[in-house]
Design a protein around this nucleic acid. Structure first.
Lengths: 225, 225
DNA sequence: CATTGTGAACTTATTCACAGCC
DNA sequence: GGCTGTGAATAAGTTCACAATG
């Protein structure tokens, strides 16, 4: 018996494959760097080259959303930044909360990269009573029981889970019950959320495993040659 | 002009698509949880269901590497854990170093999930002289100049970059020059490494952008219905 | 005339479906 | 009976190649 149809290649988002969205955010990052370096325009082949994609790939990805290029010119960096931000939904601020103020949680509270993309962590939650009422990087820590109230009060739409594996599903359930629309999960477990709530998981150890796989593959290929 | 042929779907690793390796590490994580819960065996459809994949997908992924199942029974959890660990290269310890002992770097030093998968951070490097000689979570911080020597001395094979964007390429260059075989990059830039060095990038803000995209897509779909 | 946008060709990935096995 | 492994079928994603364009 097979699962309904989650295919892993598309997660959701108007029929746009997840891989396209992933590349889109790479284009955005690269375009910001280009802008910072004073570039006005860039062609699909130049942009692709910097990231290791073909020119056609860049154009096809953008074609999912409209026509943004200028024949003979390329893409205007500033214009395309605005367009991609609108596509990704980061053309406005998002209020975010953090669940789990441990090692990783504290680092996330101090991470500058969120604010610069429009993400604002406005509340943190932790089970440890010793942390309640304290502020980290200017963010106040509440008890887990206050989660629903704060999410309502501060209009928090996204939640970041940075609790131990065994507490992750409970954290997700609470966030969902409180009405967040999306979750970024750093706990090394698959949490389940209802349809209608977006979810992305980042598992640091799994990322390193992707590295070791290619390392050992290379070693193995070298051994048999 | 198009780029050579990086296709993005496969990065390297004996012709095995990156997506397969990614799922493999999910299977591994899930199998560990199953084992911890006392399960002896699991079928491809059960394993797939837990992660949102079809049964055929699970079997095909494993088929890239051999025949590990038992008809009528499924897969023996313990056996499959060993097999996947061997495939991913995590059936042994990897010495890892960290470059950049800031917010995020300190959290990574304290992250328990690395050790449990065989990754041992044995040295850290930072440009800030105030940190030199200090230990964080039992790991000694060296000046960046000591990088090559320590990597040689402690046989470090992997490097984690957790420095600001503008310092990331230099950190990568140093790691490569010192002879690491793989890099996990948390800086929000594309660093380039020579062929022969593996690289995986994790950009926290980009991960959140994947979440917001699906959130706004759902909102947009709802709006036009 | 460099560069986009896009149908057509091609390549890669996923699912189906069933023979073979325990 | 329940489950794997896999060739065949289908679907999805990528690249090619060229007409259209400022």
């Amino acid at each position: 018996m097979s699962s309904p149809k989650p295919t892993s290649a598309r997660s959701d988002g108007g029929g746009v494959p997840a891989a396209v969205v992933n590349r889109l955010s790479m284009y955005l990052r690269e375009l910001r760097h280009l802008l910072a370096d004073g570039n006005q325009t860039i062609s699909s082949s130049q942009l692709g080259q910097r990231l290791g994609f073909t020119d056609a790939q860049v154009r096809k990805d953008l074609a999912h959303f409209g026509q943004f290029g200028h024949p003979g010119i390329g893409y205007r960096c500033e214009e395309l930044v605005d367009i991609i931000r609108r596509i990704l939904g980061t053309d406005r601020q998002w209020n975010v909360c953090l669940v789990g103020v441990g090692n990783l949680g504290q680092a996330l509270l101090g991470y500058k990269g969120f604010a610069s993309q429009g993400f604002k962590i406005v509340a943190a939650f932790d089970a440890d009573a010793a942390k309640h009422g304290q502020t980290y990087e200017g963010v106040l820590v509440y008890p887990a029981e206050a989660l629903a109230d704060e999410i309502q009060r501060q209009q928090i739409e996204l939640g970041i889970i940075a609790v131990p594996a065994q507490a992750a599903q409970a954290a997700a359930d609470r966030l969902v019950a409180a009405g967040v629309s999306g979750i970024l999960n750093f706990a090394p477990v698959t949490v389940s959320v209802p349809p209608g709530v977006s979810k992305v998981g980042v598992d640091l150890a799994r990322e390193l495993e992707q590295v070791t796989f290619t390392v050992v593959s290379r070693l193995r290929a070298a051994a048999e040659s």
